[in-house]
Write a protein that binds this DNA or RNA. Structure first.
Lengths: 185, 185
DNA sequence: GCAGGCATATATCGGGAAGATATATATCGG
DNA sequence: CCGATATATATCTTCCCGATATATGCCTGC
């Protein structure tokens, strides 16, 4: 999934500015499984224009820089459908926490404790953020898209599983570091 | 975690060739939370040599190209410890599966089914691979490093949670796609 | 009341990561 | 005996991403 396809995906759901596309990967519905920064979004949008997959309309704003609203063209829609048909890459996690904990013996115990607690908190707040969006959607009465519902549920479930595992094994790790002979879990 | 630090980490545990470092991220103990390819490992190793953080010894081999065994220098050890002290980035998942399922309505139902089944299988086999390594380690009687034990346990737990969630919600998704009014989970 | 930080908004630059590709050979399975 | 796989290193090009630059309105705390 290159950033061009990611932009296509956001625009497939309606017109947006580069800034709004970034937000879709920061707080929006894609936040927990794809990412993109300005440094890749703006070049990607330029390419979409050149290739005729999107068009942009400039909206002048008082004070702020002009807002450029991007919208897919018919060939942009077609390109997105073709991208969806391509074989996906395997999923993967990138975790600096696990990397550091792998070397827990080389770290001061206080830092190990602070690291785990910080990440438990981060995992939990991610899970609650997504769960909150789901509750809102349910309450709104709008019809539920089964794909999106499954995807957001996956996020809640997996973040909770991660937080729960760390919570359950936190003590055993810290004890194991103090007396280096015992095992956790 | 740049690839230089990743190489430092593997070499911190003992000498290795570039090829062996790659395997540590494919099948080895780092496989489920960090990754690196040849295109970044070899340049990283060259830099480690230039900076005096590692030294290489060439072993001639019959037929095969010369094997270069890398080993950390004392300043390499120090650099690794400094790297461990730096603030970690937040964890994140990259999932093409979730991206595609988000747009499940735009996909043929047979493809959605095949995608889910393939990824359930992939998640399960990852979990079982790591669980197998853990069982082996336990049986070997060697002493258990608490950090590594927690990290591998995390992998088993989270991969299983992902596979279980998909298994539980597979039917509801497929039914929801057939009759677009109902919700999953 | 105002100063500082945050949100809105776009864009580029440079360093780095990653997949594809090239090269060479031994071994294993069908 | 042929092809696939494993061992082993290296580069090349494309793309990614964080940092930085620019400009201003709005809100909060002091």
């Amino acid at each position: 999934m290159d950033v061009k396809t990611l932009c296509l995906a956001v625009l497939f759901q309606g017109e947006a500015t580069g800034y709004e596309i970034k937000k879709a990967f920061e707080e929006g519905p894609f936040a927990h499984f794809q990412r993109a920064g300005f440094g890749s979004i703006y070049p990607a949008l330029s390419k979409l224009l050149v290739e005729g997959l999107a068009e942009a309309e400039a909206h002048e704003q008082d004070g702020r820089p002009d807002k450029k609203v991007y919208r897919l063209t018919p060939s942009g829609h077609a390109a997105f459908r073709r991208a969806l048909a391509e074989p996906p890459e395997p999923d993967h996690l990138r975790s600096d926490l696990l990397f550091l904990l792998y070397f827990a013996r080389e770290l001061p115990p206080a830092r190990v404790e602070a690291l785990i607690d910080g990440y438990i908190e981060a995992y939990r707040s991610q899970a609650e953020r997504i769960a909150g969006c789901r509750a809102e959607r349910l309450a709104s009465g709008a019809d539920i898209d089964p794909g999106r519902w499954l995807v957001s549920g996956f996020g809640v479930e997996v973040y909770r599983a991660a937080a729960d595992y760390l919570t359950r094994n936190r003590e055993a790790l810290l004890a194991g570091l103090a007396r280096p002979m015992e095992a956790a879990e």
